[in-house]
Simulated scan of single mutants.
Amino acid sequence: MTVALANTLTSRWAAAADGPAAFSGAGVYPLLALLAGVASGPARDELLAVAPSPLELPASGAVRAAAGVWTRHDLPLAPGWDAGSRLSGDPAADRARLDAWAARSTGGLVPALPVAVDEDTALVLASALAVETQWRRPFDDAVMTPAGGPWSGLRLPSLSRGHVAADALAPLRATGGVTLLTVEGSEDVDVVLCLGAPPAAPGAVLATAIDGFAGAAPATAGPGVHAEEVDATDPAPELVVSLPSFDVTAGHDLLTMPDLFGLRTAARDGTFPGISPVDLAVSSARQQALARFTALGFQAATVTALAMFPLAFHPPTARRLRVTVTFDRPFGYFAVHRPTGLVLVAGWVRRP
């Protein structure tokens, strides 16, 4: 059920942003679910509408995920809230630590956390997701010169491969007028390519593909598909695939679409009593993403981060005397009746 909710967020994001170059609803969802569990009032209701249950990101040889929490060193925390790592209050030092975490968590694919950190930052939540898989059947390098469309006449570096087998057409499917091609990875991650017919908007094509993938039907016709009978010595069908290689990056400001992510009240009013008695609001919510499709395989990584600031918080300005008493050698004790001063029991502790 939670997977379906995360996929719905990805689909809605694709449609609302009209097909970003690279993005991950799965990278955002765990942070929204975490905030929903510690928010109150309208902020909680809005977050629960988007992410009502936790999502555990898969971990395998092809997928790795990480999460991080950093709180300001002087921020009082609610009982039970894990302080995680503490921000030092030195923006340059904190920035270096957060960037190092992003690079380490994505194998260097995303070298920096996408949110700013300054002396007013009270909390940073982050998730990192990295995917890397090799193709079961690699592609060959080729050149493509489209005869029509926006790329007409361009000479493009491309990838191609052909496969003759009884099940060669199994990866080709269609849903809602969108052609889907599954490129199988060598482990447990595949990449699905989707193509719609002009003038369908990119966001609509992506949303249709994501929503309909599970029920997509086998197809030998559709956008980008050309079927013909050819002479051969083997009657088994052949699937020939041609596409440009790609290497894309994108940055996203989630607060430009606050309703999509359930962050409108969280960014305006807060509050999150499950984190701190101090009223907090989301000051920044961003994702940095990349995807790379080559002849040998696929790489992708996202780092999503939310920064929070106190709506009204005055750090301590006074100094106090602190006295510590330690009983670290044999000591005596007694119990006294308070109204009368009667000592009821007494003794000496020789060994702890």
Results as ranks from 00 to 15, higher is better:
residue 220 T to R: 12
residue 28 V to P: 00
residue 244 P to L: 07
residue 125 L to S: 05
residue 88 S to P: 03
residue 298 F to G: 02
residue 83 A to S: 13
residue 22 A to G: 10
residue 29 Y to K: 05
residue 279 D to G: 14
residue 58 P to D: 06
residue 133 T to C: 09
residue 252 H to V: 08
residue 319 R to T: 14
residue 247 D to L: 06
residue 189 V to M: 06
residue 323 V to T: 15
residue 50 V to Q: 01
residue 93 A to M: 03
residue 72 R to L: 09
residue 128 A to M: 10
residue 248 V to A: 14
residue 126 A to Y: 04
residue 130 A to Q: 09
residue 302 T to L: 06
residue 214 A to H: 08
residue 115 V to M: 09
residue 24 S to A: 13
residue 341 G to A: 10
residue 90 D to Y: 07
residue 174 A to E: 11
residue 137 R to F: 10
residue 173 R to H: 01
residue 30 P to V: 04
residue 68 G to Q: 08
residue 84 G to H: 10
residue 325 V to D: 13
residue 326 T to V: 15
residue 233 T to K: 07
residue 65 A to P: 00
residue 69 V to C: 13
residue 64 R to Y: 06
residue 329 R to N: 09
residue 261 F to I: 11
residue 235 P to S: 10
residue 294 T to P: 00
residue 347 G to Q: 06
residue 232 A to S: 15
residue 7 N to I: 00
residue 206 L to R: 04
residue 342 L to F: 06
residue 107 G to Y: 09
residue 212 G to P: 03
residue 352 P to S: 14
residue 62 A to V: 03
residue 243 L to E: 01
residue 262 G to I: 06
residue 5 L to V: 12
residue 85 S to L: 11
residue 261 F to H: 13
residue 239 L to Q: 02
residue 246 F to Q: 04
residue 123 L to N: 03
residue 159 L to D: 03
residue 14 A to W: 10
residue 184 E to N: 04
residue 178 V to W: 07
residue 113 L to E: 02
residue 112 A to G: 06
residue 7 N to R: 10
residue 247 D to I: 00
residue 75 L to H: 05
residue 300 A to D: 01
residue 43 A to I: 01
residue 350 R to G: 15
residue 124 V to Y: 08
residue 263 L to G: 00
residue 174 A to T: 08
residue 126 A to L: 05
residue 223 P to M: 04
residue 95 R to F: 03
residue 93 A to I: 07
residue 159 L to C: 05
residue 299 Q to E: 14
residue 43 A to T: 05
residue 71 T to L: 13
residue 20 P to N: 00
residue 346 A to G: 14
residue 71 T to N: 05
